[in-house]
């Protein structure tokens, strides 16, 4: 759905020319939620602006749903939704007027506009603010209003640049739920953030950028599979548990044991059947096990693996 090849973006910083993005090549499939992670200044916003047809790269190819954005930006725009960092709104327009403006600009039939605007306001829980001036909304509500604008035309691809910046924890949770809802509808979403927890729960793919370069990109499972030489398991115990650690450590196939507060985490070299057998043996041995599960590799693990330590 999104494909870039050898994209480079330079910008001017005073007298210097700075390379914001260098030789970026990535592919994002249809229906994926792609998290672009990187510290401030990593090149995330420049990448999104190039994808959004707002900036021409110094060189490189960018295709959205097969459309070359440099050759045919108008066609690309008709399938794109874009939400910038600290998204602005027209302060002198009411919420519904703000959405109606873009419904008109995207040539939604007049008969459909009212319904679509109402649907989008409902989606972001702003129905009761329909007639409120956009300039009087709180930061969180403003973000939601702009998100409503982004989904207004039912775009195939959504580009969200730091959508949670400046939001309080509750607004951040609401936004996350909303993005999850959109992801469930099959949208291809590229969301950038420098805050790891924002993305870790609902991304299907990630890309890690540092200093303008994409250090790693792909589906989380694929990356995890590449990383996983051994499965990692967690055992939690009831009551006093420290005395049981040695028993676990001495089991076949167990290595790299770490304490985690309520039990242990360890790498296990065997198959799933071997893990079941281990559990059975530990229970027979009288260990008060309350939980035994395999820990999936998360975005944080990947980051630690890659070594992108600047990302929070």
């Amino acid at each position: 759905m999104i494909e870039t090849r050898d994209v480079r973006v330079d910008y001017r910083d005073g007298a210097k020319t700075v390379t914001a993005v260098s030789d970026l090549s990535l592919e994002i499939g249809r229906g994926e939620v792609y998290g672009l992670i990187g510290p401030n200044g990593a090149g995330k916003t420049s990448t999104i602006k190039v994808l959004a047809t707002l900036m021409l790269p110094t060189y490189g190819d960018v295709r959205i749903d097969g459309i070359d954005v440099a050759q045919d930006p108008r066609s690309a725009r008709s399938i794109l939704g874009y939400m910038p960092d600290l998204a602005p709104v027209y302060k002198n327009l009411k919420c519904w007027e703000f959405l109606d403006l873009y419904a008109g600009a995207f040539s939604l039939p007049r008969s459909e506009r009212k319904r679509r605007v109402a649907e989008c306001l409902e989606l972001v829980n702003l129905t009761e603010k329909r007639d409120t001036m956009a300039g009087t909304l709180s930061r969180g509500m403003t973000q939601r209003l702009v998100l409503a604008k982004t989904v207004l035309t039912d775009p195939k691809v959504m580009l969200l640049d730091e959508p949670a910046s400046g939001l309080d924890p509750i607004a951040r949770r609401d936004l996350r739920d909303l993005l999850r809802k959109l992801a469930d509808r099959g949208k291809t979403i590229l969301v950038s953030s420098h805050i790891l927890t924002e993305l870790s729960e609902f991304c299907t793919s990630i890309g890690i950028m540092e200093k303008g370069r994409l250090k790693l990109s792909g589906r989380i499972e694929d990356i995890a599979a590449r990383m996983e030489q051994k499965r990692r398991y967690v055992i939690e115990f009831l009551g006093e548990w420290r005395s049981h650690v040695a028993r676990v450590e001495s089991s076949d196939g167990v290595s790299s044991v770490e304490l985690n507060g309520r039990g242990v985490e360890f790498d296990f070299g065997g198959s799933e059947a071997d893990a079941t057998a281990l559990l059975k043996q530990l229970v027979i041995d009288g260990l008060p096990i309350s939980a035994f599960f395999e820990r999936r590799v998360g975005v944080e693990d990947i980051l630690l693996h890659v070594g992108a330590k600047e990302v929070s």
Binding site: A52, T53, R74, S78, L86, Y102
Partner: peptide, 14 residues
């Protein structure tokens, strides 16, 4: 300055 022009740029208006 505020970035609203980007919204307009992003529309398929000629």
């Amino acid at each position: 300055d505020e970035g609203l022009l980007d919204y307009t740029r992003m529309t398929p208006l000629s």
